[in-house]
Simulated assay, not measured.
Amino acid sequence: MPDLVALIESVSDKALLVIVVMALAAMVEAALGLGVFIPGETVVVIGATVLAHASGWWVALGVFMVAVGATAGDHFGWFVGRKVGEPIGRSRAVESIGFDKWERAMQAVQHQRLVPLIVVRQLPGVRTLVAAACGAAGVTYARFATASVLGALIWALLWVGGGALVGHTVIDILGPLLPIALLAWILVILGLFLRKRLKARRDNTQA
């Protein structure tokens, strides 16, 4: 899709602004449950594709800032989980993602082992609940922060590095399908939102 490629090339001289947007997307994506509605990986990959047109140094800075944004979102989730405690597992924010994912997150953090905390942070869906689960399960801040920083750095390397390496090729191949993919994503999000609203209304009626 030449027009999309030309657009990416035209904003490559605004690399700093692109990095700020990527970092904010990573932060919101990592915060409690917001990753369901904010496609953080999509924003990061597209941003990395732009940075690849600018300079390798911008890509490296992008990795660092995305990792910072992601761990900032993790900290938000951890503080909420520590403040609310186990009842957060029954909240609407968790319900919107899935109670099964919450259980997986709790199982991963209950032994407070560093490697599982880092690994589970990479898993789609579960990742946005790991920090809150750490807070609710009483994981010490030192262990949580270590796992968050290392896990966020790995996540940033994967998505920023991947976007910088293959993003342009993917856009060249799938460019004409991107508008359809975007529309499909919007419809899926709307469908999930309406489904949750209808379920909540039925539950309230039956209560």
Rank of each mutant, 00 (worst) to 15 (best):
G62W: 11
R92F: 10
T169E: 15
G89M: 01
V94L: 04
P179N: 07
V166P: 00
T146I: 13
A200C: 00
Q110M: 09
A147V: 02
V160A: 02
M106C: 03
A93L: 15
L123F: 14
V119P: 12
I186W: 08
L198T: 11
V18S: 09
Q206M: 12
G62A: 01
V84N: 02
Q107H: 14
T49C: 14
P116S: 07
A131L: 12
G162F: 01
A136V: 05
G40Q: 03
V5I: 15
V160G: 07
L177N: 00
M65H: 01
D3F: 06
F144N: 02
D13Y: 12
F37W: 10
T42D: 05
V80K: 07
F76Q: 06
A15I: 01
R127V: 04
G69R: 07
F76I: 08
G62T: 04
A207Q: 11
M106H: 05
L192G: 08
I97D: 07
Y141V: 08
Q107S: 10
V59G: 04
I171S: 06
L157K: 08
G69I: 04
M1Q: 15
L16S: 12
R197W: 13
G81Q: 13
C134Y: 00
I19K: 09
V160Y: 03
V166T: 12
L150W: 06
G138P: 01
C134G: 08
L183Q: 04
I19W: 09
V20E: 06
V66R: 08
I154L: 15
L194F: 13
G47Q: 09
I46H: 07
E9V: 14
V126G: 00
G62F: 09
A25M: 04
L157T: 00
V68E: 10
G135S: 03
R143M: 13
A48G: 02
Q107F: 05
F193T: 14
I97A: 06
R90I: 00
R127D: 03
V21T: 10
I88T: 00
A6F: 13
V44H: 08
F64A: 13
F193P: 00
E41C: 01
E29Q: 09
L157E: 10
G56S: 14
H53D: 03
N204M: 03
V28Y: 05
V44I: 15
G40M: 05
T205N: 00
I173V: 13
V43K: 14
Q122F: 05
R195S: 11
A131T: 06
G151F: 08
A105C: 10
V63R: 10
W159K: 11
G125L: 08
W155N: 03
A200D: 05
V45E: 03
G162H: 07
M27A: 10
D74N: 06
T49E: 01
V149P: 11
V59M: 01
A164T: 05
W155Q: 07
T42Q: 06
R90W: 04
H168G: 11
I46K: 00
E41A: 07
W57A: 15
S10E: 07
V166Y: 11
W57K: 11
A147L: 09
V120G: 07
L157G: 13
V5G: 08
N204P: 00
V80I: 12
V20G: 11
M106T: 11
I46W: 07
R202D: 00
L32A: 14
H53Y: 14
